[in-house]
């Protein structure tokens, strides 16, 4: 079996615990001064890659774990986090603040990166919690012509480069099998990401972080979608409380829900 060369794309997003606010001009969500962190689904990708190596799950072993992120200079912080969790090295593709790439552009970038890095496994989060698109992994698989396993909750390696993945689907789980090279996207139940320890955070500072631009990959940020407006959702008003179960039933009848 081939040794694994894993590429792990990670995205810097507004922290999941922060309630995002729409800016006054209604053009975007306010990001200045807001806490950012690694997209939670990407933490699962990094964790899984590191576990595959630590638990020696792949018969051919793990040769390389490379984290990659496209974004402003601050995206380097989350690449350091990925390295502190166990990634060997990282690539930062500089994209200026506010000039976010669309999933198709990211997929095109990752295709080039996967080819350049000779990756045979790309593990991505199933979606980023900012634009909630759930597209990049599937698009990348399509562009590379590789098999894909989305929303993975279990990954097992077999003989002859075969990989079995249990996926979360509507109503339960489904298992598929494919051969390397392939694309996997992570779902919440795949693992529990570790916290980076202080010694590992220190070590990560010494790991290699390559700085690149879209031009280095022969790409430019081509936008297909124009954001016309970003607004707050219509607020929902609580209707108050009732005293007891009878009150609940009569209120529900009054609202036509029973």
């Amino acid at each position: 079996m081939s040794a694994l060369r894993i590429l792990v794309p990670v995205k810097r997003v507004i922290d999941y615990a922060v309630k995002p606010r729409v800016n006054k001009a209604q053009t975007a969500v306010e990001t200045a001064g807001v806490k950012h962190s690694m997209n939670p689904f990407d933490e699962l990708s990094v964790e899984e890659s590191v576990r595959i190596r630590e638990k020696k799950r792949a018969p051919g072993g793990v040769e390389d774990i490379c984290a990659i992120s496209a974004g402003p200079a601050k995206a380097q912080d989350i690449l350091r986090t990925a390295m502190a969790m166990g990634a060997d090295r990282a690539i930062h593709v500089d994209v200026k603040e506010g000039d976010d790439l669309e999933p198709l552009a990211v997929a095109k970038l990752l295709k080039k990166a996967a080819e350049e890095q000779k990756s045979n496994l790309v593990i991505l989060g199933k979606q980023s919690i900012d634009d909630d698109a759930n597209q990049t992994g599937q698009m990348l698989a399509g562009l590379l012509g590789w098999p894909q396993a989305t929303q993975a909750s279990k990954i097992e390696f077999g003989e002859g480069d075969s990989v079995s993945v249990t996926k979360e689907v509507d109503g339960g789980v489904e298992t598929i099998r494919a051969k390397l090279p392939m694309i996997i996207t992570t779902d919440l139940r795949l693992n529990e990401p570790r916290y980076a320890s202080l010694p590992n955070i220190m070590k990560a500072k010494k790991k290699k972080l390559d700085k690149k631009t879209l031009k280095d990959f022969g790409l430019e940020n081509e936008k297909r979608l124009k954001v016309l407006k970003v607004s707050e959702p219509a607020p929902r008003q609580g209707g108050g409380k009732v005293e007891d179960v009878d009150g609940l039933i009569s209120k529900l009848k009054e609202l036509g829900a029973l």
Binding site: E102, P103, L104, A107, D132, A133, N134, Q135, T136, G137, Q138, M139, L140, A141, G142, L143, Q148, T150, Q151, K167, E168, V169, D170, R224, L225
Partner: peptide, 23 residues
């Protein structure tokens, strides 16, 4: 935007060189 649609359509969009609009 079901498990089936989410799995399939982005791959279709990439093959057509289109930026999908999700959900």
């Amino acid at each position: 935007h079901t498990a089936f649609g989410k799995n399939l359509l982005p791959r279709v969009a990439a093959l057509l060189d289109c930026q999908q609009i999700s959900d």
